[in-house]
């Protein structure tokens, strides 16, 4: 059986909000090390890979592997019934067909319980080899989100160029063009505003901005984001969690 407790329901609410626009139904695999999810969006443009280590829970118990086949939007609907600071417990018996969620306020004088029906989902998995990327950029998650939002007013695509001078985001559409360039920098007072670039060769890739904007909904999970890119390959975009990560593999636009 699975029994996992979080001190604040907001932790799971934010994670589900970060992935729900891209995923419909998917399996969450639970074992003694934690919860993991790997799922492609319908169009096969983005893969979401979520890892929630058992250390990230205030209490965690999973004796035997459990697969939770869930509709992510149903999970989001139920989680809306929890207050952000409620204590949240996830429970599922072995071979059960439901996930039980309980929400308690800190004084434990209100306890809500919801049972979510589980499904058998025949899911596709992607084998992603360990990769050395040509460029790695660590930057503020909020700054990335803002930059992409600004450029989405111009075009449905953004081009990202990374070289030793910095990282440049640009877009061009009917009304004109725009770009934002960030130089590598170290901000001693606000470390999350630093921009760190590790590079073996310069990279330029273009991406659909609608999908990118869905990915950056994970900005509420982490102050920084790590972008990893190699020419002609999908990008890896990672938001670190206290014990785990939300990672996206994002297929680029390819020149004809």
């Amino acid at each position: 059986m699975l029994e996992a407790k979080l001190d604040a329901a907001s932790q799971l609410k934010k994670i589900v909000e970060a992935i729900r626009d891209m995923l419909g139904e998917c399996n969450i695999e639970c074992n003694e090390t934690g919860l993991a999810l790997q799922s492609l969006d319908k169009s096969h443009i983005v893969l979401v890979s979520l890892l929630l280590g058992s250390d990230g829970f205030s209490e965690y118990r999973c004796d035997r592997g459990v697969t939770l086949g869930l509709n992510i939007n149903s999970l989001a609907t139920v989680l809306r019934c929890a207050n952000n600071d409620d204590i949240l417990t996830l429970r599922s018996e072995d071979r059960a067909n439901e996930l039980i969620l309980t929400f308690e306020d800190s004084k434990a004088d209100r306890i809500s319980e919801f049972n979510l029906r589980l499904m058998d989902i025949d899911q596709e998995y992607l084998a992603i080899p360990e990769t050395e990327y040509a460029a790695t950029v660590v930057m503020s998650a909020a700054v990335l989100q803002r930059t992409l939002r600004d450029l989405s007013a111009l075009s449905e695509a953004v081009t990202i160029e990374i070289d030793k001078e910095g990282i440049r985001f640009s877009a061009e559409g009917d009304l004109g063009k725009g770009s934002t360039h960030f130089k590598p920098c170290v901000d001693m007072e606000n470390a999350e505003n630093s921009i760190n670039i590790t590079l073996s060769e310069p990279v330029s890739l273009s991406f659909n901005l609608q999908y990118f904007s869905n990915i950056t909904k994970a900005s509420s999970l982490s102050s920084t984001v790590t972008l990893q890119m190699t020419a002609g390959m999908p990008a890896q975009i990672e938001y670190k969690l206290p014990s785990g990560h939300v990672r996206y593999y994002f297929a680029p636009k390819i020149e004809d």
Binding site: I45, L47, L126, A157, M233, P234, A251
Partner: peptide, 14 residues
């Protein structure tokens, strides 16, 4: 002109 690629053209699906 650029086209959207899909992840299945880079990684193996199982």
């Amino acid at each position: 002109q650029s086209n959207q690629s899909t992840l299945s053209s880079f990684f193996k699906i199982s």
